[in-house]
Design a binder for these strands. Sequence first.
DNA 1: TAGTGGTCTAGACCACCTT
DNA 2: AGGTGGTCTAGACCACTAG
Lengths: 258, 258
Amino acid sequence: MVEKAKASRKPGGRKGKTPRLKRVPGKPLYAQVEEVIRQRLIDNYWKPGEALPSEFELARELSVSQGTVRKALNDMVAENLLERRQGRGTFVSEYTERRALFLYFNLIGRDGQRTMPLSRILACEDRQATERERDRLQLKPGSEVIALHRIRSLDSTPTIVERLTLPRELFPALDGDAKPPENLYRFYQGEYGITVAKAAESVQAVAADPLEAQLLGVMPGAPLLEIDRVAVTIDDRPVEWRVSRCNTENYTYVAERG
Amino acid sequence: MVEKAKASRKPGGRKGKTPRLKRVPGKPLYAQVEEVIRQRLIDNYWKPGEALPSEFELARELSVSQGTVRKALNDMVAENLLERRQGRGTFVSEYTERRALFLYFNLIGRDGQRTMPLSRILACEDRQATERERDRLQLKPGSEVIALHRIRSLDSTPTIVERLTLPRELFPALDGDAKPPENLYRFYQGEYGITVAKAAESVQAVAADPLEAQLLGVMPGAPLLEIDRVAVTIDDRPVEWRVSRCNTENYTYVAERG
DNA sequence: TAGTGGTCTAGACCACCTT
DNA sequence: AGGTGGTCTAGACCACTAG
Protein backbone atom coordinates (compact mmCIF):
# COMPACT_ATOMS: atom_id res chain seq x y z
CA MET A 1 0.00 0.00 0.00
CA VAL A 2 1.99 2.91 1.22
CA GLU A 3 5.44 2.67 -0.29
CA LYS A 4 8.51 3.60 1.55
CA ALA A 5 8.71 7.26 0.88
CA LYS A 6 12.47 7.35 0.93
CA ALA A 7 12.82 7.58 -2.84
CA SER A 8 10.10 10.17 -3.14
CA ARG A 9 11.63 12.16 -0.38
CA LYS A 10 13.47 14.29 -2.85
CA PRO A 11 11.24 14.73 -5.86
CA GLY A 12 12.85 17.99 -6.69
CA GLY A 13 10.71 21.00 -6.00
CA ARG A 14 9.31 20.89 -2.52
CA LYS A 15 11.19 21.94 0.51
CA GLY A 16 14.60 20.59 -0.18
CA LYS A 17 15.61 17.27 1.26
CA THR A 18 14.66 17.56 4.88
CA PRO A 19 12.17 19.57 6.84
CA ARG A 20 14.41 22.07 8.54
CA LEU A 21 12.67 23.10 11.69
CA LYS A 22 12.79 26.63 12.88
CA ARG A 23 11.42 28.36 15.89
CA VAL A 24 7.78 29.29 15.71
CA PRO A 25 6.21 31.48 18.39
CA GLY A 26 3.93 29.48 20.65
CA LYS A 27 5.02 26.11 19.33
CA PRO A 28 7.99 24.44 21.02
CA LEU A 29 10.60 22.85 18.80
CA TYR A 30 10.18 19.45 20.41
CA ALA A 31 6.48 19.55 19.53
CA GLN A 32 7.38 20.12 15.91
CA VAL A 33 9.81 17.21 16.07
CA GLU A 34 6.98 15.07 17.43
CA GLU A 35 4.75 16.11 14.56
CA VAL A 36 7.31 15.13 11.97
CA ILE A 37 7.88 11.73 13.55
CA ARG A 38 4.18 11.14 14.10
CA GLN A 39 3.46 11.89 10.46
CA ARG A 40 6.11 9.43 9.37
CA LEU A 41 4.50 6.76 11.51
CA ILE A 42 1.11 7.52 9.96
CA ASP A 43 2.68 7.29 6.48
CA ASN A 44 4.36 4.00 7.40
CA TYR A 45 7.67 5.59 6.51
CA TRP A 46 9.02 3.74 9.54
CA LYS A 47 7.18 0.46 10.00
CA PRO A 48 6.26 -1.31 13.24
CA GLY A 49 9.26 -3.06 14.74
CA GLU A 50 11.70 -0.99 12.73
CA ALA A 51 14.42 1.11 14.33
CA LEU A 52 14.44 4.88 13.98
CA PRO A 53 17.69 6.73 13.28
CA SER A 54 19.68 7.60 16.38
CA GLU A 55 19.02 10.75 18.34
CA PHE A 56 22.05 12.43 16.81
CA GLU A 57 21.04 11.60 13.25
CA LEU A 58 17.53 12.90 13.77
CA ALA A 59 18.92 16.00 15.44
CA ARG A 60 21.21 16.69 12.52
CA GLU A 61 18.47 16.06 9.98
CA LEU A 62 16.03 18.41 11.66
CA SER A 63 18.64 20.97 12.70
CA VAL A 64 17.87 20.81 16.39
CA SER A 65 19.89 19.63 19.34
CA GLN A 66 19.98 16.04 20.52
CA GLY A 67 18.26 16.99 23.77
CA THR A 68 15.27 18.32 21.89
CA VAL A 69 14.94 15.10 19.89
CA ARG A 70 15.22 13.17 23.13
CA LYS A 71 12.31 15.01 24.68
CA ALA A 72 10.14 14.38 21.61
CA LEU A 73 11.00 10.67 21.54
CA ASN A 74 10.36 10.24 25.26
CA ASP A 75 6.98 11.92 24.93
CA MET A 76 6.04 9.47 22.22
CA VAL A 77 7.22 6.55 24.34
CA ALA A 78 4.75 7.76 26.97
CA GLU A 79 2.04 7.54 24.30
CA ASN A 80 3.03 3.94 23.54
CA LEU A 81 3.97 4.85 19.99
CA LEU A 82 7.70 4.13 20.37
CA GLU A 83 9.88 1.91 22.52
CA ARG A 84 13.47 2.58 23.49
CA ARG A 85 16.05 0.08 24.55
CA GLN A 86 19.36 1.19 25.97
CA GLY A 87 22.26 0.26 23.79
CA ARG A 88 20.01 -0.84 20.93
CA GLY A 89 17.91 2.01 19.66
CA THR A 90 14.41 3.46 19.32
CA PHE A 91 11.74 1.28 17.71
CA VAL A 92 8.23 1.69 16.38
CA SER A 93 5.79 -0.12 18.68
CA GLU A 94 4.46 -3.42 17.46
CA TYR A 95 1.41 -5.40 18.49
CA THR A 96 2.83 -8.43 20.18
CA GLU A 97 0.63 -10.88 22.07
CA ARG A 98 1.96 -9.55 25.31
CA ARG A 99 1.24 -5.99 24.39
CA ALA A 100 -2.30 -6.78 23.31
CA LEU A 101 -2.91 -8.62 26.55
CA PHE A 102 -1.64 -5.90 28.83
CA LEU A 103 -2.81 -2.84 26.97
CA TYR A 104 -6.14 -3.91 25.57
CA PHE A 105 -7.38 -6.92 27.47
CA ASN A 106 -8.57 -6.08 30.92
CA LEU A 107 -10.36 -9.16 32.18
CA ILE A 108 -8.31 -10.95 34.78
CA GLY A 109 -8.99 -14.05 36.83
CA ARG A 110 -9.64 -14.14 40.56
CA ASP A 111 -5.98 -15.00 41.06
CA GLY A 112 -4.87 -11.90 39.17
CA GLN A 113 -3.66 -13.86 36.16
CA ARG A 114 -4.18 -12.63 32.62
CA THR A 115 -5.10 -15.32 30.14
CA MET A 116 -5.12 -15.17 26.37
CA PRO A 117 -8.65 -15.70 25.09
CA LEU A 118 -9.55 -18.19 22.37
CA SER A 119 -12.16 -17.05 19.86
CA ARG A 120 -14.73 -18.76 17.70
CA ILE A 121 -16.40 -16.74 14.99
CA LEU A 122 -20.17 -17.17 14.90
CA ALA A 123 -20.93 -14.91 11.96
CA CYS A 124 -19.26 -12.51 9.57
CA GLU A 125 -21.51 -10.18 7.68
CA ASP A 126 -21.06 -7.50 5.05
CA ARG A 127 -23.67 -4.79 5.09
CA GLN A 128 -24.58 -1.12 5.30
CA ALA A 129 -23.76 0.67 8.52
CA THR A 130 -26.59 1.34 10.93
CA GLU A 131 -27.03 4.84 12.25
CA ARG A 132 -25.37 3.94 15.51
CA GLU A 133 -22.43 2.38 13.73
CA ARG A 134 -22.03 5.44 11.54
CA ASP A 135 -22.04 7.57 14.64
CA ARG A 136 -19.42 5.53 16.45
CA LEU A 137 -17.14 5.05 13.45
CA GLN A 138 -17.67 8.52 11.97
CA LEU A 139 -18.96 7.16 8.68
CA LYS A 140 -21.03 8.81 5.98
CA PRO A 141 -24.55 7.54 5.24
CA GLY A 142 -24.48 4.53 2.96
CA SER A 143 -21.05 3.37 4.14
CA GLU A 144 -20.37 -0.35 4.20
CA VAL A 145 -19.17 -2.20 7.26
CA ILE A 146 -17.95 -5.66 8.16
CA ALA A 147 -19.82 -7.05 11.16
CA LEU A 148 -18.24 -9.84 13.18
CA HIS A 149 -19.90 -11.89 15.88
CA ARG A 150 -17.71 -14.13 18.01
CA ILE A 151 -17.47 -15.88 21.34
CA ARG A 152 -14.28 -15.92 23.37
CA SER A 153 -13.23 -18.43 25.98
CA LEU A 154 -10.91 -17.97 28.93
CA ASP A 155 -9.43 -21.17 30.35
CA SER A 156 -11.78 -23.15 28.09
CA THR A 157 -14.86 -21.45 29.55
CA PRO A 158 -17.03 -19.34 27.20
CA THR A 159 -16.87 -15.94 28.86
CA ILE A 160 -17.29 -13.15 26.31
CA VAL A 161 -19.76 -12.59 23.50
CA GLU A 162 -18.44 -9.92 21.19
CA ARG A 163 -19.79 -7.91 18.27
CA LEU A 164 -17.30 -5.98 16.14
CA THR A 165 -17.91 -3.49 13.37
CA LEU A 166 -15.18 -2.41 10.95
CA PRO A 167 -15.39 0.22 8.21
CA ARG A 168 -15.23 -1.63 4.89
CA GLU A 169 -13.16 1.12 3.29
CA LEU A 170 -10.31 0.50 5.72
CA PHE A 171 -10.28 -3.24 5.10
CA PRO A 172 -10.93 -3.71 1.37
CA ALA A 173 -9.68 -7.28 1.04
CA LEU A 174 -11.28 -8.73 4.16
CA ASP A 175 -14.17 -11.12 3.61
CA GLY A 176 -16.04 -13.83 5.43
CA ASP A 177 -13.85 -16.63 4.13
CA ALA A 178 -10.51 -15.26 5.25
CA LYS A 179 -11.11 -15.54 8.94
CA PRO A 180 -9.15 -12.99 10.89
CA PRO A 181 -6.92 -14.33 13.68
CA GLU A 182 -7.09 -13.99 17.44
CA ASN A 183 -5.08 -10.81 17.72
CA LEU A 184 -7.06 -8.45 15.52
CA TYR A 185 -5.01 -5.32 16.19
CA ARG A 186 -1.85 -7.08 15.10
CA PHE A 187 -3.71 -8.33 12.04
CA TYR A 188 -4.89 -4.83 11.14
CA GLN A 189 -1.31 -3.62 11.44
CA GLY A 190 0.38 -6.41 9.52
CA GLU A 191 -2.14 -6.72 6.69
CA TYR A 192 -3.42 -3.20 6.32
CA GLY A 193 -0.80 -0.93 7.83
CA ILE A 194 -3.42 0.30 10.27
CA THR A 195 -2.12 0.88 13.76
CA VAL A 196 -4.46 1.08 16.72
CA ALA A 197 -2.97 3.73 18.99
CA LYS A 198 -5.57 4.03 21.71
CA ALA A 199 -9.11 3.16 22.67
CA ALA A 200 -11.89 4.63 24.80
CA GLU A 201 -14.00 2.23 26.79
CA SER A 202 -17.28 2.67 28.57
CA VAL A 203 -18.64 0.00 30.82
CA GLN A 204 -22.14 -0.91 32.01
CA ALA A 205 -24.05 -3.74 33.63
CA VAL A 206 -26.68 -5.38 31.44
CA ALA A 207 -28.95 -8.41 31.53
CA ALA A 208 -28.11 -11.41 29.36
CA ASP A 209 -30.51 -11.99 26.48
CA PRO A 210 -31.53 -15.59 25.68
CA LEU A 211 -28.88 -16.13 23.00
CA GLU A 212 -26.05 -14.73 25.13
CA ALA A 213 -27.27 -16.73 28.08
CA GLN A 214 -27.13 -19.92 26.07
CA LEU A 215 -23.68 -19.17 24.67
CA LEU A 216 -22.25 -18.29 28.06
CA GLY A 217 -24.05 -20.95 30.04
CA VAL A 218 -25.90 -18.57 32.35
CA MET A 219 -29.56 -17.86 33.02
CA PRO A 220 -31.33 -15.34 30.78
CA GLY A 221 -31.39 -12.04 32.61
CA ALA A 222 -28.15 -12.81 34.46
CA PRO A 223 -25.94 -9.75 34.94
CA LEU A 224 -23.21 -9.29 32.33
CA LEU A 225 -20.51 -6.67 32.02
CA GLU A 226 -20.79 -4.76 28.75
CA ILE A 227 -17.62 -3.09 27.47
CA ASP A 228 -18.13 -0.65 24.63
CA ARG A 229 -14.89 0.29 22.89
CA VAL A 230 -13.97 2.41 19.91
CA ALA A 231 -10.36 1.93 18.78
CA VAL A 232 -8.64 4.73 16.87
CA THR A 233 -5.43 5.17 14.87
CA ILE A 234 -2.53 7.50 15.60
CA ASP A 235 -4.34 10.25 13.71
CA ASP A 236 -7.60 9.57 15.57
CA ARG A 237 -9.55 7.85 12.83
CA PRO A 238 -11.92 5.17 14.20
CA VAL A 239 -10.86 1.67 13.20
CA GLU A 240 -13.20 -0.62 15.05
CA TRP A 241 -16.27 -0.58 17.27
CA ARG A 242 -16.47 -3.47 19.66
CA VAL A 243 -19.16 -4.37 22.18
CA SER A 244 -18.18 -7.20 24.52
CA ARG A 245 -20.57 -8.81 26.97
CA CYS A 246 -18.72 -10.68 29.69
CA ASN A 247 -19.65 -13.14 32.37
CA THR A 248 -17.82 -11.73 35.38
CA GLU A 249 -18.52 -14.56 37.80
CA ASN A 250 -14.90 -15.67 37.61
CA TYR A 251 -13.20 -12.69 35.98
CA THR A 252 -13.02 -9.00 36.76
CA TYR A 253 -12.34 -5.89 34.74
CA VAL A 254 -9.44 -3.85 36.09
CA ALA A 255 -8.50 -0.17 35.98
CA GLU A 256 -5.95 2.06 37.67
CA ARG A 257 -6.89 5.47 39.00
CA GLY A 258 -4.64 8.38 39.89
CA MET B 1 33.41 18.58 35.10
CA VAL B 2 31.60 16.83 37.87
CA GLU B 3 32.12 18.32 41.27
CA LYS B 4 33.91 15.95 43.56
CA ALA B 5 30.96 15.94 45.94
CA LYS B 6 33.27 15.74 48.94
CA ALA B 7 31.41 12.77 50.36
CA SER B 8 31.66 14.20 53.83
CA ARG B 9 28.53 12.48 55.06
CA LYS B 10 28.46 12.98 58.76
CA PRO B 11 27.52 9.82 60.60
CA GLY B 12 26.13 11.69 63.55
CA GLY B 13 24.18 14.11 61.39
CA ARG B 14 20.74 15.20 62.55
CA LYS B 15 17.55 14.65 60.72
CA GLY B 16 16.91 18.31 60.17
CA LYS B 17 20.12 18.64 58.24
CA THR B 18 20.27 18.75 54.51
CA PRO B 19 20.67 15.39 52.83
CA ARG B 20 23.58 15.86 50.51
CA LEU B 21 23.06 13.50 47.60
CA LYS B 22 25.90 11.68 46.00
CA ARG B 23 26.13 9.27 43.14
CA VAL B 24 25.22 5.71 43.94
CA PRO B 25 25.81 2.93 41.41
CA GLY B 26 22.55 1.73 39.89
CA LYS B 27 20.47 4.54 41.33
CA PRO B 28 20.14 7.71 39.27
CA LEU B 29 20.47 11.00 41.10
CA TYR B 30 17.04 12.18 40.01
CA ALA B 31 15.53 9.06 41.60
CA GLN B 32 17.19 10.00 44.87
CA VAL B 33 15.82 13.51 44.55
CA GLU B 34 12.36 12.02 44.06
CA GLU B 35 12.77 9.91 47.17
CA VAL B 36 13.70 12.92 49.28
CA ILE B 37 10.73 14.94 48.02
CA ARG B 38 8.35 11.99 48.33
CA GLN B 39 9.40 11.44 51.93
CA ARG B 40 8.76 15.08 52.72
CA LEU B 41 5.28 14.79 51.28
CA ILE B 42 4.66 11.69 53.41
CA ASP B 43 5.90 13.56 56.48
CA ASN B 44 3.69 16.53 55.65
CA TYR B 45 6.82 18.67 55.64
CA TRP B 46 5.25 20.41 52.65
CA LYS B 47 1.49 20.47 52.95
CA PRO B 48 -1.14 20.15 50.21
CA GLY B 49 -1.52 23.41 48.31
CA GLU B 50 1.83 24.70 49.54
CA ALA B 51 4.58 25.79 47.18
CA LEU B 52 7.89 23.94 47.06
CA PRO B 53 11.17 25.85 46.89
CA SER B 54 12.24 26.76 43.38
CA GLU B 55 14.24 24.39 41.22
CA PHE B 56 17.41 26.31 41.90
CA GLU B 57 16.94 26.29 45.66
CA LEU B 58 16.28 22.56 45.72
CA ALA B 59 19.26 21.99 43.46
CA ARG B 60 21.54 23.94 45.75
CA GLU B 61 20.20 22.23 48.85
CA LEU B 62 20.71 18.74 47.44
CA SER B 63 23.95 19.56 45.61
CA VAL B 64 22.66 18.55 42.20
CA SER B 65 22.03 20.52 39.06
CA GLN B 66 18.78 22.28 38.30
CA GLY B 67 18.12 19.94 35.37
CA THR B 68 18.21 16.93 37.66
CA VAL B 69 15.72 18.52 40.05
CA ARG B 70 13.54 19.35 37.05
CA LYS B 71 13.40 15.74 35.94
CA ALA B 72 12.45 14.58 39.41
CA LEU B 73 9.71 17.19 39.75
CA ASN B 74 8.28 16.42 36.31
CA ASP B 75 8.18 12.71 37.11
CA MET B 76 6.17 13.48 40.23
CA VAL B 77 3.81 15.71 38.27
CA ALA B 78 3.13 12.68 36.06
CA GLU B 79 2.20 10.78 39.23
CA ASN B 80 -0.27 13.52 40.20
CA LEU B 81 1.68 14.29 43.36
CA LEU B 82 2.76 17.79 42.32
CA GLU B 83 1.46 20.54 40.05
CA ARG B 84 3.56 23.15 38.29
CA ARG B 85 2.43 26.50 37.01
CA GLN B 86 4.71 28.57 34.86
CA GLY B 87 5.70 31.79 36.49
CA ARG B 88 4.26 30.75 39.84
CA GLY B 89 5.95 27.67 41.19
CA THR B 90 5.59 23.99 42.05
CA PHE B 91 2.77 23.01 44.41
CA VAL B 92 1.74 19.95 46.37
CA SER B 93 -1.43 18.49 44.84
CA GLU B 94 -4.66 19.15 46.69
CA TYR B 95 -7.98 17.40 46.56
CA THR B 96 -10.25 19.93 44.97
CA GLU B 97 -13.77 19.03 43.88
CA ARG B 98 -12.68 19.13 40.30
CA ARG B 99 -9.77 16.86 40.93
CA ALA B 100 -11.89 14.33 42.82
CA LEU B 101 -14.42 14.34 40.02
CA PHE B 102 -11.96 13.78 37.21
CA LEU B 103 -9.50 11.48 38.91
CA TYR B 104 -11.70 9.35 41.10
CA PHE B 105 -15.26 9.55 39.85
CA ASN B 106 -15.81 7.68 36.65
CA LEU B 107 -19.54 7.51 36.17
CA ILE B 108 -20.64 9.86 33.44
CA GLY B 109 -24.04 10.58 31.97
CA ARG B 110 -25.18 9.62 28.48
CA ASP B 111 -24.29 13.12 27.34
CA GLY B 112 -20.72 12.76 28.58
CA GLN B 113 -21.23 15.16 31.47
CA ARG B 114 -19.69 14.55 34.85
CA THR B 115 -21.92 15.38 37.79
CA MET B 116 -21.04 15.74 41.43
CA PRO B 117 -22.90 13.12 43.45
CA LEU B 118 -24.92 13.93 46.58
CA SER B 119 -24.65 11.43 49.41
CA ARG B 120 -26.90 10.34 52.26
CA ILE B 121 -25.39 8.22 55.00
CA LEU B 122 -27.52 5.21 55.92
CA ALA B 123 -25.34 3.77 58.66
CA CYS B 124 -22.00 4.31 60.33
CA GLU B 125 -20.68 1.48 62.40
CA ASP B 126 -17.63 0.84 64.53
CA ARG B 127 -16.54 -2.78 64.74
CA GLN B 128 -13.84 -5.41 64.30
CA ALA B 129 -12.58 -5.99 60.78
CA THR B 130 -13.82 -9.06 58.95
CA GLU B 131 -11.27 -11.35 57.35
CA ARG B 132 -11.95 -9.87 53.95
CA GLU B 133 -11.54 -6.35 55.25
CA ARG B 134 -8.28 -7.26 56.94
CA ASP B 135 -7.09 -8.71 53.66
CA ARG B 136 -7.98 -5.67 51.62
CA LEU B 137 -6.72 -3.10 54.09
CA GLN B 138 -3.68 -5.11 55.24
CA LEU B 139 -4.78 -5.11 58.86
CA LYS B 140 -3.79 -7.37 61.72
CA PRO B 141 -6.38 -9.66 63.32
CA GLY B 142 -8.47 -7.84 65.86
CA SER B 143 -8.10 -4.45 64.15
CA GLU B 144 -10.98 -2.02 64.40
CA VAL B 145 -12.63 -0.46 61.38
CA ILE B 146 -15.22 2.20 60.65
CA ALA B 147 -17.89 0.92 58.27
CA LEU B 148 -19.96 3.41 56.32
CA HIS B 149 -23.06 2.69 54.28
CA ARG B 150 -24.39 5.42 52.04
CA ILE B 151 -26.45 6.09 48.95
CA ARG B 152 -25.40 8.61 46.33
CA SER B 153 -27.59 10.45 43.87
CA LEU B 154 -26.71 11.84 40.47
CA ASP B 155 -29.05 14.53 39.16
CA SER B 156 -31.39 13.78 42.08
CA THR B 157 -31.67 10.12 41.11
CA PRO B 158 -30.40 7.49 43.57
CA THR B 159 -27.75 5.71 41.53
CA ILE B 160 -25.03 4.28 43.76
CA VAL B 161 -25.15 2.22 46.93
CA GLU B 162 -21.76 2.30 48.60
CA ARG B 163 -20.08 0.51 51.48
CA LEU B 164 -16.81 1.92 52.80
CA THR B 165 -14.40 0.51 55.32
CA LEU B 166 -11.70 2.62 56.98
CA PRO B 167 -8.98 1.48 59.40
CA ARG B 168 -9.79 2.93 62.80
CA GLU B 169 -6.14 3.55 63.60
CA LEU B 170 -5.85 6.00 60.71
CA PHE B 171 -8.91 7.97 61.76
CA PRO B 172 -8.85 8.08 65.56
CA ALA B 173 -11.26 10.97 66.02
CA LEU B 174 -13.90 9.95 63.50
CA ASP B 175 -17.20 8.72 64.93
CA GLY B 176 -20.77 8.25 63.84
CA ASP B 177 -21.86 11.68 65.00
CA ALA B 178 -19.33 13.74 63.06
CA LYS B 179 -20.64 12.91 59.65
CA PRO B 180 -17.92 13.07 57.02
CA PRO B 181 -18.60 15.30 54.01
CA GLU B 182 -19.16 14.53 50.35
CA ASN B 183 -15.53 14.63 49.29
CA LEU B 184 -13.99 12.02 51.56
CA TYR B 185 -10.49 12.16 50.14
CA ARG B 186 -10.28 15.87 50.74
CA PHE B 187 -11.61 15.28 54.24
CA TYR B 188 -8.98 12.63 54.94
CA GLN B 189 -6.32 15.06 53.78
CA GLY B 190 -7.53 18.13 55.61
CA GLU B 191 -8.42 16.49 58.92
CA TYR B 192 -5.93 13.68 59.14
CA GLY B 193 -3.05 14.59 56.85
CA ILE B 194 -3.72 11.43 54.88
CA THR B 195 -3.32 11.83 51.15
CA VAL B 196 -4.84 9.36 48.74
CA ALA B 197 -2.33 9.04 45.92
CA LYS B 198 -3.85 6.33 43.77
CA ALA B 199 -6.44 3.59 43.67
CA ALA B 200 -6.91 0.23 42.02
CA GLU B 201 -10.38 -0.63 40.81
CA SER B 202 -11.90 -3.89 39.71
CA VAL B 203 -15.31 -3.99 38.11
CA GLN B 204 -17.96 -6.68 37.78
CA ALA B 205 -21.61 -7.11 36.93
CA VAL B 206 -23.80 -8.28 39.80
CA ALA B 207 -27.49 -8.74 40.55
CA ALA B 208 -29.22 -6.25 42.84
CA ASP B 209 -30.24 -7.67 46.20
CA PRO B 210 -33.65 -6.66 47.62
CA LEU B 211 -32.31 -3.78 49.73
CA GLU B 212 -30.24 -2.31 46.91
CA ALA B 213 -33.14 -2.72 44.53
CA GLN B 214 -35.40 -0.76 46.85
CA LEU B 215 -32.85 2.00 47.40
CA LEU B 216 -32.11 2.37 43.69
CA GLY B 217 -35.66 1.91 42.46
CA VAL B 218 -34.95 -1.16 40.31
CA MET B 219 -36.21 -4.73 40.37
CA PRO B 220 -34.41 -7.24 42.60
CA GLY B 221 -31.97 -9.16 40.43
CA ALA B 222 -31.51 -6.21 38.07
CA PRO B 223 -27.94 -5.89 36.76
CA LEU B 224 -25.73 -3.46 38.69
CA LEU B 225 -22.14 -2.42 38.13
CA GLU B 226 -19.98 -3.21 41.13
CA ILE B 227 -16.80 -1.15 41.52
CA ASP B 228 -14.35 -2.49 44.10
CA ARG B 229 -11.68 0.04 45.01
CA VAL B 230 -8.81 0.15 47.47
CA ALA B 231 -7.31 3.62 47.86
CA VAL B 232 -3.71 3.93 49.03
CA THR B 233 -1.40 6.70 50.25
CA ILE B 234 1.81 7.93 48.66
CA ASP B 235 3.71 5.23 50.55
CA ASP B 236 1.22 2.56 49.51
CA ARG B 237 -0.64 2.10 52.78
CA PRO B 238 -4.32 1.23 52.26
CA VAL B 239 -6.62 4.02 53.42
CA GLU B 240 -10.07 2.92 52.38
CA TRP B 241 -11.91 -0.02 50.86
CA ARG B 242 -14.98 0.96 48.91
CA VAL B 243 -17.53 -1.20 47.12
CA SER B 244 -19.97 0.76 44.97
CA ARG B 245 -22.98 -0.79 43.29
CA CYS B 246 -24.27 1.40 40.50
CA ASN B 247 -27.37 1.52 38.37
CA THR B 248 -25.92 2.03 34.90
CA GLU B 249 -29.18 2.54 33.04
CA ASN B 250 -28.38 6.22 32.59
CA TYR B 251 -24.69 6.38 33.49
CA THR B 252 -21.59 4.59 32.25
CA TYR B 253 -18.20 3.87 33.72
CA VAL B 254 -15.37 5.19 31.56
CA ALA B 255 -11.73 4.18 31.03
CA GLU B 256 -8.98 5.04 28.59
CA ARG B 257 -6.76 2.38 27.07
CA GLY B 258 -3.40 2.77 25.40
C1' DT C 1 10.96 44.35 37.64
C1' DA C 2 12.13 40.13 39.82
C1' DG C 3 11.30 35.41 40.18
C1' DT C 4 9.34 31.25 38.53
C1' DG C 5 8.94 27.34 35.40
C1' DG C 6 9.56 26.12 30.13
C1' DT C 7 12.59 25.49 26.29
C1' DC C 8 16.91 24.80 24.00
C1' DT C 9 21.64 23.99 23.46
C1' DA C 10 26.26 21.78 24.11
C1' DG C 11 29.12 18.62 25.96
C1' DA C 12 30.58 15.01 29.25
C1' DC C 13 30.41 10.52 31.04
C1' DC C 14 27.98 6.04 31.99
C1' DA C 15 25.54 1.51 31.03
C1' DC C 16 24.28 -1.55 27.80
C1' DC C 17 24.27 -4.08 23.42
C1' DT C 18 26.27 -5.71 19.23
C1' DT C 19 30.31 -6.89 16.48
C1' DA D 1 35.62 -1.24 19.97
C1' DG D 2 31.99 1.44 18.48
C1' DG D 3 27.30 2.85 18.72
C1' DT D 4 23.05 3.42 21.23
C1' DG D 5 20.19 5.41 24.77
C1' DG D 6 20.51 7.16 29.93
C1' DT D 7 22.17 10.55 33.13
C1' DC D 8 24.08 14.86 34.57
C1' DT D 9 25.75 19.35 34.20
C1' DA D 10 25.98 24.35 32.90
C1' DG D 11 24.29 28.19 30.94
C1' DA D 12 21.24 30.88 27.87
C1' DC D 13 16.96 32.76 26.68
C1' DC D 14 11.72 32.84 26.69
C1' DA D 15 6.91 33.16 28.79
C1' DC D 16 4.22 33.85 32.45
C1' DT D 17 2.92 35.80 37.07
C1' DA D 18 3.22 38.77 40.69
C1' DG D 19 4.11 42.98 43.41
